[in-house]
Write a protein that binds this DNA or RNA. Structure first.
Length: 822
RNA sequence: GCCGGAGUGGCGGAAUUGGUAGACGCGCUGGACUCAAAAUCCAGUCUGGCUCACACCAGGUGCCGGUUCGAGUCCGGCCUUCGGUACCA
């Protein structure tokens, strides 16, 4: 016999669709469960195995919850703006709108064939004015609260193409991916969202959500809170000053120079004429370096002096001012005080350029006269630090900050590595920024009533020069809404992470036209209960979404503090060790497998592959295992066609009245229910399925001789367990055994009979010196004395203890008995 | 570089979170069924030693060291590899 998956799967998919089984009744939030997968980027590579791996198992979890009685909402949509569609347009001339729509149509088709419980009535895409209008609205709200602003920021610039490049378009050697020209950093005025305003809350909020620890740690490190002081160094012979941020004000007496980031705005102002050439040359050389290169701790340090001198506020000492690339303009104040004696990078820099190294904190157990061979960065006793000498450096740290504050030379300060969110892109395929630049009035907001600022279709795509919107006369030229003067629209579009930072609100009613989302519904359904997506989003998308959620809360649009209560990361499916991507040409298309073995088998295979959060390298080896699993189950149910109709219903059995074989089956089905429930609830699909396979093995041994009542009992339960992981098969088997009610329209879950799980004996492992010598069957909960009697009657054990002194005996109830001998 | 993961048989992986390492599946080997093959079913399968065999013994979770009666699991130091690193999403 073979398994007619094609007919079965099509039949049930059609049935579910025709009967609107997937449609969620959003008015019923009594047992609501919002289960969301990160929406899909509609690339030309279509749906690949990685997507299937993300969506299939998550849908199985959602189906499990549905069977358990939850009202589950599973939406699907398209993250449709973005760079690749625009690059494709430049390359082929196909308009991003057209290619995106084509891709969406294909992907929608593939998604529908997966047989997931998506509520297609709420399908959504971000590249239409109905959606992106609300990105613009969001922009205006942020602007009005002072959380959207413009400032200069460096971008990757290709001098040949005269265009901005994404990091992805810069090759690893720092050249333009298209033309090979060395890419430089160029400052441009850019829009930012002030995520830093929420830094503290983004940090503390992590404690309130059920997210993977690794992700919380990543976000914590990304936000990078550090506590210290901002200290002012006055410049000699100048009214200018340099503010530095330091986490170690206790080392202030050890400052022997000050370093500015090469991009720091005051660099050229303070550089003395004789150093000017060197400084300009150095600034230029830094332009082509990435931040990763610059901050590398293994890279040889570089830098040049400016000729200027700063005055150390604590001791009045004159120290030289340098510039060096290891100082970043984007962190802190863009300048650091250098303490080579107590900072590793400063130590290396000072050694290289022969700058003085001074010891101001004494390492415990060393002498003041000992030479420093490396930076000492821990706590010790203060030396060479005037009135602080002899005190503990941790105490001195606090004291020095207080003293600086009193003298007006510095302040207590908390710094974050987190930077404001740069949202403007010099590109076409995104949300236009709703700002008009007027020569008289400056930045003017587009009125809310005038939204959306529509993205014009008719634009020219070219590799070189300004972005398509900047070149589009009809779009860019506009009258100032304030004064009527000729003005220009902002030519930039928004980062697509803006789209994805609030989409989960809109899913509940994507057609609403007078608000970004339907507050009556979102008040009931948001936050999302389960959010599933890749860990590559740990620090960007997942942080931006939390930020915007908190902003909406502050506008009074939601009551919750966090968008995603529980988060799970699916692992990455790689192919030959590399992430699947169209550009690498290693994308595995699932469609051929679906044609060969059906979606249930494919879904089972993906889930059975390994731990969901781990992923793995793609291989279809072993798919026959899940094929056999499906076939075995199908044949089993076929064998007992209509058994529910012909057998009286029994919900519980007295285990003492069963035969040995029946007892074994009854125990196993109940153990399986428990195990499967626990495992699938935690997204442990591989072990959940393994438990079903164990049940199969048991049934192939002992099922035949069971009573019809027990057979009916078992099959009725097995079909429900199959429901989440092989939904089409389960629906079919449910019908075969004679149930008139469909599974997913009439969700049901059977709890295990706990009486069947009670064991009265247990195998205790017996070890001698930690080595297993035998296992002994003992009555459950035996005392040490009871077990000891059995242990020392056991030849395999005594063989290893004879003639030796027993030093110790350890007994762990129902588990292990270890004898230590000498 | 920095931040966060991962490393267990021929392969994918399991292990109640410090307590019998290798569940479940693939593959392979042998057997049953068949004229034969496929499919299916049954049995075996970490490595080495010694045995006709059962048994028994030793070793074994990337590497080195430590804690413990006991370590895949905890601690210290490495190696390899993957993801992110703020304009791919």
């Amino acid at each position: 016999m073979s398994y007619p998956f094609y007919e079965i799967e099509n039949k049930w998919r059609k049935y579910w669709e025709d009967n609107k089984v997937y449609k969620t009744d959003l008015s019923d939030d009594e047992r609501k469960l919002y289960c969301l997968v990160m929406f899909i980027y509609p690339s030309g590579a279509k749906l690949h195995c990685g997507h299937w791996y993300n969506y299939g198992p998550t849908d199985s979890w959602a189906r499990y919850k549905k069977l358990k009685g939850f009202n589950v909402f599973e939406p699907m949509g398209y993250d449709a703006f973005g760079l690749p569609a625009e690059n494709y347009a430049i390359k082929t001339g196909v308009h991003p709108y057209d290619s995106t729509m084509t891709n969406i149509a294909d992907i929608r088709n593939q998604l529908k064939n997966m047989g997931c419980m998506y509520d297609w009535s709420t399908e959504m895409m971000t590249c239409v004015p109905e959606y992106y209008k609300w990105n613009q609205w969001l922009f205006l709200q942020l602007y009005k609260k002072g959380l959207a602003y413009r400032k200069n920021a460096p971008v990757n610039w290709c001098p040949k193409d005269q265009t901005v490049l994404a990091n992805e378009q810069v090759s690893s050697d720092g050249t333009c991916e298209r033309c090979g020209t060395v890419v430089i950093k160029k400052n441009m005025t850019q829009w930012f969202f002030k995520i830093t305003e929420y830094a503290e809350e983004l940090l503390s909020g992590l404690e309130t959500i059920n997210w993977p620890e690794e992700t919380k740690v990543k976000q914590t490190n990304w936000i990078g809170k550090s506590i210290g002081a901002e200290v002012t160094f006055k410049l000699e012979n100048s009214n200018k000053e340099i503010k530095v941020f330091t986490t170690r004000p206790d080392t202030l007496f050890g400052v022997t120079y000050v370093v500015l980031a090469p991009e720091n705005e005051i660099v050229l102002d303070i550089t003395t004429p004789e150093y000017r050439d060197g400084v300009v040359k150095y600034m230029d050389s830094v332009k082509s370096l990435s931040e990763i290169d610059r901050t590398s701790t293994v890279k040889e340090k570089t830098g040049v002096p400016t000729g200027a001198f700063a005055v150390n506020p604590v001791n009045g000492e004159k120290v030289p001012v340098w510039i060096a690339d290891y100082v970043l303009a984007t962190y802190g104040t863009g300048s650091v005080m250098a303490v080579p004696g107590h900072d590793e990078r400063d130590f290396l820099f000072a050694k290289k350029f022969n700058l003085p190294i001074r010891k101001v904190i004494l390492k415990p157990g060393t002498q003041e006269s000992d030479e420093l061979t490396e930076a000492f960065t821990e706590v010790g006793t203060m030396v060479n630090s005037a009135k602080y000498n002899g005190t503990n450096s941790a105490d001195a740290l606090e004291k020095i900050i207080k003293d600086l504050e009193v003298e007006g030379k510095g302040t207590h300060k908390i710094n974050y590595k987190l930077r404001d969110w740069l949202i403007s892109r010099q590109r076409y395929w995104g949300t236009p920024i709703p700002i008009i630049h007027c020569p008289k009035c400056g930045e003017v907001l587009v009125e809310e009533s005038q939204l959306p600022v529509e993205l014009p279709y008719d634009v020219e795509f070219s590799l070189k020069g300004e972005s398509p919107l900047a070149k589009n006369e009809k779009f860019i030229n506009v009258k100032c809404p304030n004064c009527g003067t000729d003005a220009k629209r902002d030519p930039d579009t928004m980062d697509t992470f803006v789209d994805s930072s609030w989409y989960y609100f809109r899913y509940l009613n994507p057609k609403i036209s007078d608000a970004p989302f339907d507050k009556a519904l979102t008040d009931k359904w948001v936050p999302v209960d389960m959010y599933v997506g890749g860990r590559e989003h740990a620090t960007m998308h997942l942080l931006y979404a939390r930020f915007i959620h908190k902003f909406f809360r502050d506008l009074g649009l939601t009551k919750s503090d966090e968008p995603f209560k529980t988060l799970i990361h699916q692992g990455t499916i790689t192919n030959q060790g590399a992430k699947m991507s169209k550009s690498k040409g290693n994308v595995v298309n699932p469609d051929t497998f679906i044609q060969d073995v059906g979606t249930d088998v494919f879904r089972l295979f993906l889930m059975f592959m390994g731990p969901y959060e781990m992923g793995g390298d793609w291989s279809d080896k072993g798919i026959s295992g899940t094929e056999r699993f499906v076939l075995r189950n199908y044949e089993l149910f076929k064998k007992y066609e209509n058994i529910l109709k012909n057998t009286s219903n029994k919900e519980k059995f007295n285990i003492d009245e069963l035969s040995e074989a029946e007892k074994s089956v009854y125990k196993k089905i109940n153990q399986t229910i428990k195990k499967f429930d626990e495992e699938i609830n935690q997204f442990k699909f591989n072990t959940a399925i393994a438990s079903l396979m164990e049940l199969n093995n048991e049934l192939s041994k002992n099922f035949e001789v069971c009573s019809d009542e027990l057979k009916a009992y078992t099959l009725k339960r097995l079909v429900v367990l199959l429901g989440p992981v092989a939904p089409h098969l389960a629906e079919e088997c449910n019908k075969i055994i004679g149930n008139d009610k469909t599974l997913f329209e009439n969700p049901v879950w059977y709890a295990q009979d706990d009486a069947a799980l009670i064991e009265n004996s247990v195998k205790v492992a017996v070890q001698v010196n930690g080595k297993l010598r035998d296992t002994i069957d003992c009555p459950i909960n035996s005392t040490q004395e009871e077990v000891k009697a059995l242990v020392f009657a056991n030849e395999r054990v005594t063989k290893h203890t004879e003639g030796k002194t027993i030093v110790k005996e350890i007994y762990v109830k129902n588990k292990i008995y270890n004898i230590v001998v000498k």
